[in-house]
Design a protein around this nucleic acid. Structure first.
Length: 394
DNA sequence: GTAGTGCCCAAGATTAGAAC
DNA sequence: GTTCTAATCTTGGGCACTAC
């Protein structure tokens, strides 16, 4: 049951502190926000904080099509030798896919990462598409290209796909079957489920998307693969309960939900987000002022974990990230500790508990901010129900 | 008429890295 | 080590529209 930091812009001391305190088990670094030499220095610093930490680099090749626009916000990605803007038609040629895999792996393995993530494109429509064929080719070639380097660190293959693709059940299950029967399999997959935008919460908190993502973790794990879920945030404990190995979350919304919007041009200014407190009991974040007000009326909202004391009344950004990781780690340990049936029962109990707490808060006449509300609970409950049906557990 | 919903628009703070 | 500059990060109010 592992939790990683999803690294990105504005890191400060968050990851170092999280590793040093043993709150997180590792980090997934973002080349968009780091130069290659800085990445090497950071990995050394993380290892000093925690020698056991899992440290990976997400090659972010899925931004290749977005990167062709001059306005694209690809940050420092062009400074990495593996990253180039490619046309889809060029990627239909196997030799080109091999060349991209080769130069990416060459760069990644030159750094002291503990596992290696291979590049892939983003499947933006369905598993029955030209992009899916290209993505499958990246997955098939990954191991054989990696073997040429003679490196023995675990290999994870990127599978980046839009949430819509999970809704077309037939194509999705066929794709899963294909990648579980690879001739030269990797140790695992680095799974990213894309939303239209980080603000469209219902894109990911949708019963069929949750069920599909859980099914992906379940199917791949029973076939012997490890699954690292990127940008999984509050879904992490549910994905691990279904068989996943690790999940990841960061400090800004765009590090908690995967979206290619992150690479698109913006209008410029964005406010700093409101400081929030992740309540394990509510399975959600509330604003720090709501947490302050609720702590007297409904003390069950509080986690009772060490970083709670930083909210007196207002934490700094580092403490906010550490508090969220700490709460997620508790949920991971609560919901993912047993076999699949026990875990699903535990997930439903946790949701019922959250529903009861929300009812208590509503009974007190306390109005919550829109994002702090209970809208996430119904899709979670329904998602688990659909997942159980799909896997024959129901 | 009122409440709810969705879209549009304008509003600094924080961090990283370069320059000194 | 300090200062400066550039890059990056959503929120909340106002308004229009719709349902009741």
């Amino acid at each position: 049951m592992k939790l990683y930091a999803q690294q990105g812009y504005g890191e400060g001391e968050k990851i170092f502190q999280g590793l040093h305190e043993g709150i997180i088990n590792g980090a997934i670094l973002s080349p968009r926000d780091l130069k290659p030499d800085v990445a090497a220095a950071k990995i050394a610093k993380y290892k000093a904080a925690n020698p056991e930490a899992d440290l990976l680099i997400d090659p972010q090749f899925y931004a290749t099509f977005a990167g062709s626009s001059e306005m694209a916000r690809v940050g420092k990605l062009p400074e990495w030798s593996h990253f180039t803007s490619e046309r889809k038609s060029e990627l239909e040629i196997t030799a080109n896919v091999e060349a991209i895999l080769h130069r990416t792996l060459e760069q990644i393995i030159s750094l002291p990462v503990t596992s290696v993530i291979t590049p892939n494109i983003y499947i933006s429509r369905s598993f029955d598409s030209r992009e899916a064929v290209i993505a499958k080719n990246f997955i098939r070639q990954a191991r054989s290209v990696y073997q040429r380097f003679g490196d023995n660190r675990p290999l994870f293959v990127t599978l980046a796909v839009c949430r819509e693709a999970l809704l077309e059940r037939g194509d999705f299950e066929e794709f899963l079957n294909d990648i579980t029967m690879l001739a030269e399999p990797p140790e695992g997959f680095y799974v990213l489920i894309g939303s239209r935008g980080t603000e469209v919460r219902t894109d990911i908190f949708h019963a069929d998307v949750i069920a599909g993502w859980m099914l992906m973790n379940h199917s791949l794990s029973i076939n012997g693969f490890q699954i690292i879920n990127g940008f999984s945030d509050l879904l992490t404990p549910f994905l691990l309960a279904a068989g996943g190995t690790a999940g990841a979350s960061g400090w800004f919304a765009n590090l908690r939900t995967f979206s290619l919007d992150r690479f698109q041009p913006t209008q410029g200014m964005a406010r700093q987000p409101i400081l929030r407190y992740l309540s394990a009991a509510l399975l959600n974040r509330v604003t720090f002022t709501e947490k302050d007000a609720l702590s007297g009326m409904v003390p069950e909202v509080l986690n009772g974990l060490p970083h709670d004391v930083d909210y007196d009344p207002e934490p700094d950004r580092t403490s906010e990230a550490l508090q969220a990781w700490e709460a997620l780690q508790r949920l991971n340990n609560t919901l993912g500790a047993g076999d699949i049936e026990e875990n699903m029962t535990g997930c439903n109990l946790e949701i019922s508990r959250a529903e009861a707490l929300y009812s208590e808060i509503a009974g007190l006449g306390f109005g919550l901010d829109r994002k702090s509300g209970s809208d996430h609970l119904e899709p979670l409950r329904e998602g688990i129900h659909v997942f159980k049906k799909m896997t024959g557990l129901d």
